[in-house]
């Protein structure tokens, strides 16, 4: 493998391992001041927490639950849980990370209580192979790297829409692993499935997402 290609692969490896990145250490902190205010029930502290942190949490719960009413309930529950357990916040992570984790857990709890839907197939979005094991389709590298093209602001709504189009069983795993950064074991535990099932669903979800985004991945310069 030549040097340039190897460098690209190293870059992809970093992209694909969100759980291996080192979290930013908490700074000496506005967080701590707010946590202290919450612990002492200072007037306005809880409202400040809700107003400054709530928007991001709503974006997370909307993605996971795909339903505005449930997403709002989950945000409310997140803040109530956080307020109740603020004494247990140890400051080992950022306050936003701690809240985010609560929001994900609350959302997963809601997903578990929903009536189970039969698993939808996404076989039609997976690559097809010839008898000799070669891909049926030809894939092209454009003159511009695919990640640069897809990461443009004007493509981001398309990417989010494509994620929303994935069947729920696959979308949830992709969101938890690739977007929220949970590790495979955590996702398996939260969803009550095996680690192998998580890995398989994640791989298929990524393949399906690639197919959905294929029109954006071709050669724009042709």
């Amino acid at each position: 493998m030549n040097g340039a290609r190897l460098a690209a692969v190293v870059c992809y490896s970093a992209v694909a391992s969100p759980t291996e990145t080192t979290p930013t250490p908490p700074s000496a902190s506005p967080d701590q001041a707010l946590v202290d205010a919450l612990r002492s029930h200072a007037p306005g502290a809880f409202e400040q927490l809700v107003r400054t942190r709530g928007g991001r949490l709503l974006a997370v719960t909307r993605r996971l639950l795909g339903n505005e009413e449930d997403a709002r309930d989950a945000v409310q529950e997140t803040f109530m849980n956080a307020y109740r357990s603020i004494d247990r916040f140890e400051g080992g992570s950022l306050l936003s990370t701690w809240l985010h984790r609560i929001a994900v857990n609350v959302s997963l709890m809601k997903l578990r209580t929903r009536k189970r839907k039969p698993e939808e197939s996404l076989d039609h979005l997976l690559p097809a192979f010839k008898d000799d094991g070669h891909f049926m389709e030809r894939f092209e590298s454009g003159s511009e790297p695919a990640d640069v093209r897809l990461s443009r602001i004007e493509e981001q709504a398309t990417v989010r829409t494509a994620i929303d189009e994935l069947p729920e069983h696959y979308r949830t795993v992709l969101l938890l692993r690739d977007i929220e950064g949970l590790d495979t074991r955590d996702v398996a535990e939260q969803l009550g499935i095996t680690a192998n099932a998580v890995k398989l669903r994640l791989h298929r979800a990524r393949q399906a997402l690639r197919t959905l985004l294929a029109p954006r991945l071709g050669r724009p310069d042709r």
Binding site: V15, F135, A146, L150, Q156, V159, R160, I179, R210
Partner: peptide, 18 residues
């Protein structure tokens, strides 16, 4: 190689978009 590039790109793009 092209498939790998695209597969990795959608992972990164999903993260950026969200």
């Amino acid at each position: 190689r092209a498939y790998l590039e695209q597969y990795a790109a959608v992972i990164k793009a999903g993260r950026c978009a969200c």
